[in-house]
């Protein structure tokens, strides 16, 4: 069945100035302006945000659940990327 509700958009909200944008949900809208207005009405009725990003869902590229292993595992064996890997002499104290 054809969808005459308009395409799906993913909505991201910034809670306060300076904070990152966080995904809060999705909605249907026919154009950019309507996507923003709908997002305002749907996701910010109680001051949930000060800024909105609306992104067409089909523009989002996502990793696959099956790829968790090969995709993210290499991060685990590179402990030298964390500061706790290194020893600082007591005489130096905090660094």
């Amino acid at each position: 069945m054809s969808d005459n509700q308009g395409p799906v958009w993913e909505i991201f909200l910034q809670k306060k100035a300076g904070q990152p944008f966080v995904h809060c949900g999705s909605l249907h809208a026919f154009d950019k302006e309507m996507a923003l207005q709908n997002a305002r009405d749907l996701y910010t009725r109680r001051n949930e945000g000060v800024s909105i990003w609306a992104v067409p869902s089909n523009a989002i590229v996502a990793s696959s659940p099956e790829d968790i292993g090969p995709f993210f595992e290499p991060a685990n064996d590179k402990v030298y990327r964390h500061p706790t890997f290194y020893q600082i002499p007591d005489a130096i104290g905090h660094m």
Partner: peptide, 19 residues
């Protein structure tokens, strides 16, 4: 309303094809 919104978006070449 849905038809008009769709026509308007098309006219402005802003329609995004639903995934």
């Amino acid at each position: 309303v849905r038809e008009a919104a769709q026509a308007f978006a098309k006219k402005r070449n802003e329609i995004y094809v639903a995934a």
